[in-house]
Design a protein around this nucleic acid. Structure first.
Lengths: 114, 114
DNA sequence: AGCATATTCAACCAAATGGTTGACGATGCG
DNA sequence: CGCATCGTCAACCATTTGGTTGAATATGCT
């Protein structure tokens, strides 16, 4: 999976990881805090974060004993351009996006803010 | 993997499948013709097409003994909106997209037009 | 020093993925 | 009818994925 599009799309294919990205849209977070809303082990979340990091979608910076996770949305750019090439999808509709996030967060198996 | 975003992103995570979609951008194609440029069995391509179909990214219609594959770009819409919510990526740049397609097609392990 | 907190590592497991091959059903053609 | 072509199915295989648990490392606090 050398191709960056492979890793980005694969990273986005998991609902837990998409939920994490959505959480990071609000603010940078420590690993423990990212994990808190999910019903799975910290180790599992740590693995998800590694995948997101390798895809370039987040950056992790260790300050003291806590590792901060920061969204890196530019990593989605190429993937976004790739997809847009197929459809000329209407320009970003932020309302749609927010409804989207809400519905996704609300219905995931391991969702935060249930 | 009930969530449509899961299946769409997962489908797009494979370079062979992205290459197939790019080919279908040109024109509808029969399964055998889709498979021709790839260095893998017809059965393997058939599986990829099933995955693309289940993701809604293509539709397959059987006419006579040949099954035609048709791109269904609307299936990317939600995923595209989801991603755009993160970055406000610049409006579609078709030139970028074409360069992109070319470079991807040209460097894949099992690429068409080698 | 000694303990608590933050995070990862290692080993393990079940299930999914991406590929193969060979047989098979369905359709078209001479 | 008999044969070739189109495409899928079934069984198999190796690898990856997403999770677990328990131990280990690193930092901070008193």
């Amino acid at each position: 999976m050398a191709n960056p599009l492979d890793t980005v799309f694969a990273a986005l294919a998991d609902p837990t990881r998409r939920a994490i990205l959505a959480m990071l849209l609000e603010d940078d977070m420590a690993v423990t805090d990212v994990a808190e809303p999910f019903e799975m082990s910290l180790a599992a979340i740590s693995k998800h974060l590694t995948i997101l990091t390798r895809a370039g979608l987040i950056a992790q910076e260790k300050r003291g004993r806590v590792k901060w996770c920061k969204l890196q949305p530019d990593a989605m750019k190429d993937a976004s351009v790739w997809m847009q090439g197929f459809g000329q999808f209407e320009p970003v509709n932020l309302d749609a996006f927010e409804r989207f996030l809400k519905s996704e967060l609300g219905s995931e198996p391991h969702s935060p803010e249930s």
